[in-house]
Design a protein around this nucleic acid. Structure first.
Lengths: 106, 106
DNA sequence: CTCTATAGTACATTAAAATATACTACTTTT
DNA sequence: AAAAGTAGTATATTTTAATGTACTATAGAG
């Protein structure tokens, strides 16, 4: 088919959840616990975060490590695969930087 | 709030429709008619394309020019604003290039 | 003995996106 | 006179994504 289209679609499918790129961005500075991610993205809903983390893990972009403690402790970090997204993430921030205006969040 | 998050969200909201980035990519090589875009993205549905084009136009990323002919002729092209997305679009293709595998389209 | 803290699960509901189907306008071609 | 071609509109339906609410486990603090 159309190789370029196929490549674009691959990226699009992996990165374009409502908050996925934001989550990846947060993790790009290092490992974070579930609660830390949540706090750093105030508008994300609990269930939504859980779901997107699962999908990102399923796509091999992030790594999940659960510690057998009480209360539970779970750390998330980028895989090498996910790390390769960094230039893209930065580019996204850059474009937004120049075009964010009266953009209201939801 | 969090500036970086806000910028990322701006970009995410504008680019992340199911086919938006693909449409922008197609237009990045020049003006195309509605039917040409449609043919170049075989899996996109008629209504979906119409809707995404409208949203892209509403977001100021593409320009729509309708010619008063019969049958109708409508051309789409990137605005300057949309053109600034090119580095990002290329980056998306690049990442996909390295990670497209058994990716099945839908 | 009760309360707090964390990272979930389970289930129901709502909202949004995608899809399907049918129809339109007007000119040119057959 | 009928058919084809383009870029839509209108409407209904289905699919997917996002939310909301309630509940769980268990150690340590008080």
């Amino acid at each position: 088919m159309d190789r370029e289209l196929e490549c674009m679609k691959t990226t699009l499918d992996v990165v374009c959840g409502k908050w996925k790129a934001v989550i990846l961005l947060k993790l790009s500075t290092g490992t974070l616990r579930f609660g830390e991610i949540k706090k750093s993205i105030p508008l994300i809903k609990h269930q939504t975060l859980i779901k997107q983390l699962k999908e990102l893990e399923g796509d091999g972009l992030i790594y999940r490590e659960a510690f057998p403690e009480v209360p539970p402790k779970v750390e998330y970090s980028l895989t090498d695969y996910g790390n390769e997204l960094q230039p893209l993430l930065n580019q996204m921030v850059d474009w937004g930087e120049n075009h964010v205006k009266d953009h209201t969040m939801s």
